[in-house]
Amino acid sequence: MSAPPHSLLDPSIFASLESKLEEETQVRDTLSQIVQRLERAVATAQGLLSRVHSTPRSRYPALVAQVEAAVKEEALIISELEKVASQHPYYKYNHKWSRSIQNAIGTTIYCAWLGGFPAESSSSSPESTSKAPEIGRLLTLEEVGAIFSVPTNLKDRDAFHLTIEEYLLSLVDLTQDLSRLATNAVTLGDFQLPLTISAFVKDLFAGFQLLNLKNDIIRKRADSVKYEVKRVEDVVYDLSLRGLIQRPSAGDTEMESA
């Protein structure tokens, strides 16, 4: 087709737009496939984690070992995701994966909370076999990044990473599940765990209160943390009312001397 001497548009304009749109479609498809697999891996880890509600504390280590393995599966897929995603502007496609990544972070910090992913050089008592894993430890964003072998909170270059927002949202999810766990621990006769959970959730709540949140998703989700705090407090209240636990913060309470 011979272009008239003075034509409206240079055909290369739309040829280039077309190829860009096609590339975008391809990138989206590729990402969707990876994210789908990640979702399956996350679902597996979450499924395992849901067993914690009917697992006595003595059997946590066995459960945690399984979850750790599931998290490592997630890590493999995330590193695949990183390779593809880092070839494109991060915020152009991050909506494709941010929810799944948030959930993956959630499984990791929950696993660690239950005693998984022990800190590398447990400085305290190097001899003691890690028989009694520490319950209630919070992985930092950086530690999660290290487990997944991806960077966190990148600002100086445009590549795949875990964001603060994803981490904060996963903390909200964690408080939700812990408040459920507080109830179920009591049912299994573990009256101490609710105290650990209560202190932890309150600390997190205090943390969230430090943020100057705008009217966005984090605020909406973070607002729910106070209800979880309350639910756990109710459990602790029920227990202390019936004398089923020693009040942790001694002093004013009349501790039984025996």
Binding site: N153, L204, A206, G207, L210, L211
Partner: peptide, 20 residues
């Protein structure tokens, strides 16, 4: 009494606050 332990995550959240 209740909030001294909050110090546990205080620094971390302060950092998040600055970033946000």
């Amino acid at each position: 009494t209740q909030e001294l332990p909050r110090g546990r995550f205080h620094a971390m959240f302060e950092n998040f606050r600055d970033e946000l």
